[in-house]
Write a protein that binds this DNA or RNA. Sequence first.
DNA 1: TATAAAAAAAGAGCCAACTCTAATTTTTTG
DNA 2: CAAAAAATTAGAGTTGGCTCTTTTTTTATA
Lengths: 220, 220
Amino acid sequence: MASKVIGLRERNRQHRVGLILGAASRLFAQSGYDSTRIEEIAEAAEVAPATVYNYFTNKANILTALAARHVYSSWAERSAYVQNPPSDPVEAVQGFERLLADQAMRTLGRECWRVILAAPYLQPGSRLHRAGIIFGWLIERHYRRMLRTFQERGQLDADVDIRALAELITAIGTYHFGRRVSDENMTLDTLKQDIEKHVLMTFLGVMPRQARPEAPGALP
Amino acid sequence: MASKVIGLRERNRQHRVGLILGAASRLFAQSGYDSTRIEEIAEAAEVAPATVYNYFTNKANILTALAARHVYSSWAERSAYVQNPPSDPVEAVQGFERLLADQAMRTLGRECWRVILAAPYLQPGSRLHRAGIIFGWLIERHYRRMLRTFQERGQLDADVDIRALAELITAIGTYHFGRRVSDENMTLDTLKQDIEKHVLMTFLGVMPRQARPEAPGALP
DNA sequence: TATAAAAAAAGAGCCAACTCTAATTTTTTG
DNA sequence: CAAAAAATTAGAGTTGGCTCTTTTTTTATA
């Protein structure tokens, strides 16, 4: 059986989507998300406004698609980091957060990321909401991978719930990313210190040893 | 000096604000936030639409005011909890989160809380953003108080950065509150377990003892 | 009570996202 | 190549948040 041949129709389709996303990306970067009208995107893409709505249900939906493209295109770089993380776990998490933020800022502006962060709340059940969930899930997967490495190296308790820990770290990271993106006056240095504090507490805990419940696998 | 006498003008002002907020509260609960038009609020408050804009810059701003009212009116209940928390820290945090969520749901619906959670991202620098920050800050204050109690009881390391820990716990709480409010199918039980896991990891840490660095009070 | 100041209301109107319908064009298929 | 199917496009229209201006009403003050 011949491999599925992509018809002209489908090729045009993808081409148009590419044009629209390209135009949107350029305009969002140039004039910002709010100030860019759908009409302008259509014009820049040499396409009718109605066609934009043919491919994307929302203005926010265009942003999703851009973000999705970004997440996939920057996958390899993250993967490389995760497969060989720094020896110190706290440093590793911090470095990864740094990488994520750098990657994010490389493709979309603060305003866009703010809209993306807000979207899950405003449009639950929508594509954009699911996309937000999926992004979180992808990052969680990276963290799971990283954490398993640390566990193998004996730097994490053997019985730690990797899944839950990855979720927690992702949540912490998202929180700080939100701060970074919302607050213009936030210095990267403050941010870095705050992340370090939080991650450190997560890894080391905050209770004195004598006060801890007898954890399974405690000291002899 | 005589105490400031509230003139008729100011009294009317407050009266009108009360009318508008009351109407908004009722309508938001009844028809949801999105479906409620400013015009309807004005009508229900027996006030001109323009008057609504005279008092509130935004539709979202009306919500802020409602949320602010809520936060202050439910202050005492939270305060009472915090001053005498359960003996187990993890349980205490879980209980407080439960209290916060219950309080929240008592006055505003999911949709409203979603809008409130999204607002800081969409309107940075606005009143609503600051309000979001202030809410977080108020909750952080509660947690600081609670954590100091635990520290005095010897259940927390003496050199823990209370401020940072309170911020972390607040962030975790907000994360789970967001999940609760966004995901219709989330059971309270799952949520409770997830919170427990995360708080437990935060308090106990996840690194094996022998792998831990000699941690002097490295934090300034 | 007359006059000045302030606020509310009326109402016209902007703006941009989004929708709908009816052509028109393009692609596929027999 | 002609008919059918599918998609693009033009273009008019709706909606609702929000703005602006002008008029009217209310309140404060001299």
